[in-house]
């Protein structure tokens, strides 16, 4: 599904990510973990086109997408959420999802402005799709509330729904459980498993909370100072001395 080949990202003298080699097959849920500043988000940004990697290649569905513009990457089927929530604050919940639907609507600015019949049909379809997405995560009754008035956990869900509205095949989640209590995190992980099955997704997620990712991921990569220090199933990772060292520190 997606593969990174020796991806490195340097900012001046700082190497944020070096020689990252990730490979994910279809319908897997893979975790990317590591302490703060390990380069996890940078790795995401190189995959989604926010940064062009200094070296290496990103291959998605067999095609080289290295350094493509973020919106082109999304068009190819990679959607993401953000570590610090980035909802559009002046719009309501439904509009937030509808904006993401725009990508697949394929309408011109004139057809849209003149509200031509073709546009109306597409707009109606998008609205139905957006409502069905909101319904499936239990946000349908909040559709007309301002997006930022939702409680934190629901805003996170809305961000995921918004990403789903671009009809992705690969979903990248950047610390979806950040700021959640253990109970909420568990619910979220269940939710991630559910959307994977429902929308036929492949998921790569960043998380610091080890316990949380252990439950939901089939495999994980561990980064520390930009270097991949371990890779394997949750059980292997838990026993890996390097990981323990990175997380807990060893004398």
């Amino acid at each position: 599904m997606i593969k990174t080949e020796n991806v490195s990202m340097r900012f001046g003298g700082l190497t944020a990510v070096s020689d990252l080699n990730i490979q994910i097959s279809k319908n897997e849920i893979v975790g990317l973990i590591g302490p703060n500043g390990a380069g996890k988000t940078t790795a995401f940004n190189t995959i989604t086109g926010v940064y062009k990697p200094t070296e290496g290649k990103v291959i998605f569905k067999g095609e080289d997408v290295t350094g493509a513009k973020p919106h082109k990457i999304t068009e190819r089927g990679i959607a993401r959420t953000f570590q610090n929530i980035r909802l559009w604050k002046d719009m309501d919940v439904l509009e937030n999802v509808l904006v993401a639907c725009h990508l697949r609507m394929n309408v011109g600015v004139f057809a849209a402005t003149l509200h031509l019949p073709g546009y109306r049909a597409k707009e109606k379809k998008s609205r139905e799709f957006a409502m069905s997405l909101l319904d499936s995560v239990g946000l349908a009754d909040l559709a007309h509330e301002p997006a930022t008035s939702l409680p934190y956990g629901k805003q996170r869900r809305l961000e995921i729904v918004r990403a789903l509205a671009t009809e992705p095949s690969l979903l990248l989640l950047d610390e979806p459980a950040a700021g959640m209590n253990p109970q909420e995190s568990l619910e979220l992980m269940e939710f991630i498993g559910k959307i994977r099955d429902q929308y036929d997704l492949t998921i790569l997620l960043i998380e610091h909370h080890m316990q949380v990712v252990m439950g939901v991921c089939s495999r994980m990569y561990v980064l520390d100072y930009g270097v991949t220090i371990a890779h394997g199933t949750p059980d292997e990772i838990r026993r890996n001395p390097k990981v323990i060292e990175a997380y807990l520190g060893v004398d």
Partner: peptide, 13 residues
């Protein structure tokens, strides 16, 4: 207007 980075990530040119 509200968030360019999010817009880009949602496939908006």
């Amino acid at each position: 207007r509200d968030d360019e980075i999010a817009a880009e990530a949602m496939g908006i040119d």
